[in-house]
């Protein structure tokens, strides 16, 4: 399993436990995200602070994970390291997701 999941109040926090979300990892990541988010609260925060590298396959897997959540739920991203942050900005995916520098920053924001 590439992920660890905990609850913080009414938010699910999913921590990515691998350093790379790349082509070799993308399918497993997407499946792990599906099983972690099948049921649960509307807000999911993905903690990416251990991830030092992502490629476009990994980016696609995160986008797919958000789509899997469906319309009323949302996936926020926290703890983007420099390369991950760059890939999100270059592809303009930073305009699609809410990005937070740290997990604490993400948890400090209450969606409703």
């Amino acid at each position: 399993m590439s992920l660890t999941s905990t609850m913080a109040g009414d938010t699910r926090v999913i921590t990515v436990n691998v350093e790379r979300i790349d082509a070799a990892m993308a399918i497993q990541f997407k499946e792990d995200m599906r099983s972690e988010t099948e049921a649960g609260p509307d807000r999911v925060i993905l903690d990416l602070s251990q991830v030092t590298f992502i490629d476009s396959s990994g980016l696609g897997a995160i986008v797919a994970s958000m789509k899997q959540l469906g319309g009323n739920r949302r996936l926020d991203l926290a703890g983007l390291t420099p390369i991950v942050d760059k890939v999100f900005r270059l592809t303009r995916m930073d305009t699609v997701f809410n990005l937070f520098a740290t997990l604490d920053d993400a948890l400090a924001v209450h969606p409703n």
């Binding site: 490629d55 476009s56 897997a61 958000m66 789509k67 592809t91």
Partner: peptide
């Protein structure tokens, strides 16, 4: 959301 691209960024990057 449903139409967001999941690929097609490689050569652009």
């Amino acid at each position: 959301l449903a139409d967001l691209p999941e690929g097609g960024f490689g050569w652009f990057l």
